[in-house]
Amino acid sequence: MACAQRDVPDEATIVSEVDAIVDAHAGQDGAVIPVLQSIQERLGYVPREAIKRVGERMSISYSELAGVVSFYSYFTTVPRGRHTVRVCLGTACYVRGGKEVLQKFEESLGIEVGNTTEDRLFSLEVGRCFGACGLAPVVLVDDEVHQRVSPPKVRGLLDAYRDAADAESSAEAAGTGGGSESAGGRAGGADEPKEGSA
């Protein structure tokens, strides 16, 4: 599981990634949002250091850029987990109990909307209608649609992803000849908030 997460980039990496992306958009009008999108695609999130660097390179103030990043729910400034859970709170999902489902996810993951679990396996987001209102309440995990999710189903849904991640990391540990102890330790740690709140 240690290998499941993307490493948090250091400042030098951020600067060089941002510079390459800004250079690729040089001379284009209205390039701010495409640049920020590319940064999120490359790094998994838009770190504050990256926003500062974009500002320096494109002569836009930090506060203005932060305004753009915080306006669009697409952008996130915290590192993303391996899986992004999006709970729909569109009208249909909302009236069918989407909010309770969201609460259950917050409890089970031990995080609030917009954050990432400590093991960096899950990030939790809110969605505003995925166009599947007939299946409400809907939860999207990465590109996978989960329909008619109710609070009691949440634990099982998450465990499936956890198990897959565990399997992957033990396979990798076996491949590299060690590390099973640390994988076990991490899994235990991730369970803690879940047990505490259940």
Partner: peptide
């Protein structure tokens, strides 16, 4: 200067 800007939505 750009110290102030609308944040969030």
């Amino acid at each position: 200067v750009g110290a102030l800007a609308p944040q969030k939505r």
